[in-house]
Design a protein around this nucleic acid. Structure first.
Lengths: 350, 350
DNA sequence: GTGAAAGCGCTAACAG
DNA sequence: CTGTTAGCGCTTTCAC
């Protein structure tokens, strides 16, 4: 509400010569009101320039705000460079919009300080849309306030969750590569946790990333019976980073014949790096990604990838949040993925 | 707030053996409270699991919500494919975050139905971040409610505005091309208005796009003394569209020697189209854009462009919204641009 | 079908 | 420094 001297329901009621309660009913429609009376009230409202019930007062009275907070990565410019984020957010926004719920966008890293809004903002529930590691302070802050939470791509008790078949999807994808005869396969994972750095790691070692999808997609590779010849943890899941990781993997004598990247953006980067190094894809090296996002600027290539239903993921999360706000119990959702064979994978070179 | 039986300030006050008002002061810090008393109150709060004042009640009492609505294009996935949008939003989010204000994200086209949230949502002010044409129903709805509005890149009375030097910047850029000897220059504008379509239009005709930046950037071209040999209105300002427009312009015998696109994304598309047609840039054709966004996947090319301060634009809009919410009068802001000479422009071929 | 009354949880005068 | 008092604007029993 704009500050200042609004006309209130009481003014309207007075003008119409009815009681406030009757005027209220005329607006909300809840309860029996004589058509004539309603007309009168509406007319008075129009005359006085009354814009309908004050949302804040209504919220206070009804005990609900109609607002769902959506927590995304701290740097929007970065988060939103990833179609995975934007498409998910789009799904959330669509579903919330259709339900008349508000979307409070809260940028917050899942480590470090929690923005005051998360502690004090008005909300009925929250969706943590960015990657969230165990002990996530944002999640903790929300819990302490008693705000019900939906986590996307994170395994949590006491919260609703929306996940996809990361593990099975990656296993299937990797299996395809094996079937094509590849034995020297390299992997680029997702970032392991909040402290981001680019590095080789020992694929035979004890690999336990804090982030759930990172862990699951890695497990999927192993499920396919593959022990990567090289494994890189990237600092982010963006194109630039894919280029950098691609160089590390491809610009060496013992380069692999196939690279499985845990995201399409990373895979796209690898593709660019390969082109830059004069390698043909897929003749010299196969490249596969994950997410199934649309990357038109990669044309004429189309990434071989695992397609996940991003918009539906967002919608599911939004529905889950609405359900929690309505007092339902937390639930866990698992969405299916499908393999998409593009132009970037082929038989292993001999 | 989660629904249900919260413990309230009254409970805490009772437990601590003080009055509600004192307890309130202990939390807000406004007003003198004996340190000891404060301790007592805080202790009681902790014991009872009190999470601090209910934001809704506080809003009702104070008459302000601490929420700024940000209106963006209807399809987030599309809007956020444009770095111009995301970077601006990032600026808005940064500034609002620092001020402890909430960001209510409202996807809405600037024509057609207005989402209920805009009519009934709780907010102190709104920023219309997408392109907005005169008569924009979202703007009108906000006005009717008495919500103060900030428009980005749109000229409006009764609203604060944040604009950049679209016209002068484009004129300078076009001037460079002229200086390089180009005489056959083609132009791709921004979309003219809400009804989007791709088409050639008569550059010598009466050109009056509804969208302010479209109008101003076109005017800038003319200011440079250039009458384009070909002019295209694009349906969107995205890469795909740039490719399509680029084809229309370059795949013909009388092709121009330079293309000025009104956005970097469009220019990037033209570049891709040129590469695809086997044209060398800038030897065969020069390509220039506008916005100065970072397009790493265009490497090794860097677009010649006009750089606008996108993050600052967002921050300025957010500050303006906060000012309006605080009761200040609308103001108009104009931000400077700078020319960035990249690798995509060169002397006109003979 | 309509009205009176009781708050939702908090803050801000104003007294003491 | 602390307590009393009065609402913010609305919805919702509950009588009539």
């Amino acid at each position: 509400m704009a500050r200042g001297d609004r006309t209130t329901l009481a003014d309207v009621a007075a003008d119409a010569g009815v009681s406030v309660s009757t005027a209220s009913l005329a607006f909300s429609g809840a309860g029996p009101v004589a058509p004539k009376t309603r007309e009168k009230v509406l007319a008075s409202a129009a005359r006085l320039g009354y814009r309908g019930p004050d949302p804040v007062a209504r919220s206070l009275r009804r005990g609900e705000t109609g607002v769902i907070a959506v927590v995304v990565g701290d740097r929007l410019q970065r988060s939103f460079s990833d179609p995975v984020s934007t498409q998910t957010l789009d799904g959330i926004a669509q579903e919330l919009g259709e339900r008349g719920l508000g979307l409070l966008l809260v940028p917050s890293d899942t480590f470090g300080d929690v923005p005051p809004l998360l502690r004090h903002g008005a909300m009925d529930a929250a969706i943590i849309a960015g990657l969230s590691a165990p002990g996530d302070p944002a999640l903790r802050a929300l819990r302490e306030r008693g705000v019900p939470v939906v986590c996307i791509e994170a395994t949590r008790r006491d919260a609703s969750t929306v996940e996809i078949q990361d593990r099975a999807g990656t296993a299937e994808l990797t299996g395809e590569l094996v079937a094509l005869g590849h034995t020297r396969i390299a992997v680029i994972t997702l970032p392991f946790g909040p402290q981001r750095h680019r590095r080789f790691f020992d694929p035979a070692g004890d690999v336990r990333p804090a982030y759930t999808p990172t862990r699951n997609r890695w497990a999927g590779v192993r499920d396919a019976g593959v022990l990567p010849v090289l494994a890189v943890e990237p600092a982010t899941s963006l194109v630039d980073e894919g280029v950098a990781c691609g160089r590390m993997l491809l610009d060496r004598p013992d380069r692999p014949t196939a690279v499985v990247a845990a995201s399409d953006l990373l895979a796209a980067g690898v593709l660019l790096a390969a082109r830059d190094l004069g390698l043909r894809v897929p003749e010299d090296v196969s490249v596969a990604g994950f997410d199934g996002v649309d990357l038109p600027w990669l044309a004429p290539d189309v990434l071989t990838s695992v397609t996940q239903p991003l918009t539906e993921k967002g919608r599911t999360a939004a529905r889950a949040a609405a359900a929690l706000a309505a007092g339902e119990k937390p639930r866990h959702h698992l969405l299916p993925v499908t393999l998409r064979t593009g132009t970037t994978t082929g038989p292993a070179p001999r």
